[in-house]
Simulated scan of single mutants.
Amino acid sequence: MRYLILGITEARDDSGAPLPIGGARLRALLAALALRAGGPAVPVSVLVDEVWGEDPPHAAPAALQALVSRLRRALGGKDAVQADPTGGYRLPATRDDVDLYVFQRLAQEAAQTLSTPAASAPAPAPPATPPAESLRTALSLWRGPALADLPDPATRAAHATRPEALRAAAVRDLIEAELRTSTTDPASLLPEIEALIAAHPYDEPLRVQHLRALRAAGRTADALAAYDRTRRALAEGLGTDPGPPLTALHAELLQPTPRPTATPITTP
């Protein structure tokens, strides 16, 4: 069984077919349980708060028990949701069964690979999955906002803030991974980078990626113009100058591209 909480909550059987999890409360209960897969049972009071938010029903524990029974039927039987002797409920699942934790694992492994200098990697180690491939797989798991079915905005934000931040970091890591490969057309990265810059105009690492992509696409003049816009944006918006990574890249862009040396023709 797989549980999907990066978007509208879903459960899928071993063949990948979705199971009928109808109703907002039922989806909220499944999301709250899947969020804690692989851990101890979730207390009744926590589940009531996360399923009903600020509008709990009269006799909430009994209402939760009835909802658990419905969820068991939807998932295929009594063992699909386990009751704990000390109170509370849990899914008999591991984190590898939940898309959120699969995403986190793939994104963190790729980020670690990107941050590890190539010279420090053991030479005889077999090649791992390329970071760009892992990140594309990780980001494809997102179908909408994380934990979209939790009804209380504050509760949802408390659980979803870190996954959303990891998602934003994974997008940037994917751009970085693709900038490092010779198989990706750097021009194809520009629309996404420029959209991110529009949302985060003072993000200098993103600006560095923009200049690198322009340079790799053979658009050095555009990269220099982009640097000038960046310098003005930082000065007007933050009252600062570009940091060392941007200024170092700007200096590289100003260096003339060496022309190939012609081979002299010798006369026998």
Results as ranks from 00 to 15, higher is better:
V98Q: 03
L26I: 10
L166F: 14
R72G: 02
A37I: 14
R232L: 09
S120C: 06
A60T: 02
E178Y: 04
G87M: 09
A199I: 11
L114G: 01
A93Y: 06
E176C: 01
R180C: 02
L67D: 02
A168L: 15
R90Q: 03
A235G: 01
T257Y: 06
A225T: 10
L174D: 02
R180T: 04
L238R: 08
L75N: 06
G144L: 11
R105V: 10
P244I: 03
R27G: 07
A248W: 01
Q108V: 07
P57T: 12
R207N: 09
S45A: 14
A165R: 14
A138Q: 09
E236A: 06
A111F: 10
R25F: 09
P205V: 10
P85G: 08
S140A: 04
L114M: 00
G23C: 09
P117T: 13
A213G: 06
D55L: 11
A28F: 02
L139C: 07
Q255S: 10
G7E: 08
A63L: 11
T240R: 14
T267P: 12
V46R: 09
P40F: 13
A168E: 14
P244K: 03
R72I: 11
P56H: 02
L214S: 03
A132D: 06
A62F: 07
D149Q: 01
P56R: 01
P153A: 05
A154S: 14
A158Q: 13
E10I: 10
A111G: 06
P127V: 11
A195T: 14
A24F: 14
Y89G: 00
E10W: 07
R70S: 14
L135H: 00
S182D: 15
P57F: 07
A223W: 03
D55P: 05
P18N: 05
R105F: 12
P205W: 12
L139N: 05
P124S: 03
G87P: 08
A199S: 14
R229V: 11
Y101R: 00
V98T: 02
A60R: 00
G218W: 07
D99Y: 07
A11W: 09
R180H: 02
Q65W: 12
R136V: 12
E10H: 09
L26D: 07
Y227Q: 00
A24Q: 15
L30K: 05
A60S: 00
E204V: 14
A233C: 00
A80N: 03
P18G: 05
G38E: 07
G87Y: 11
G243K: 05
L234F: 10
D79F: 05
P186C: 00
R70M: 12
L214Y: 04
P242Q: 06
A110M: 00
E133N: 04
Q209H: 13
A262V: 12
A62C: 01
T137M: 01
K78D: 15
P145L: 11
A123M: 04
L211Y: 07
L4W: 13
A128W: 03
A169S: 08
T116A: 02
T267L: 15
T181I: 02
L30V: 08
G38M: 04
T113Q: 10
E236P: 04
R72A: 08
A146G: 03
T155L: 10
D49N: 13
T257F: 07
G87D: 03
Y89C: 06
Q209M: 15
D55M: 13
A66Q: 13
P244C: 01
P57E: 08
T183V: 01
A74F: 13
A169K: 08
A62D: 13
P268K: 09
I265V: 12
L29C: 09
D241C: 00
L71H: 06
A148W: 11
T266R: 12
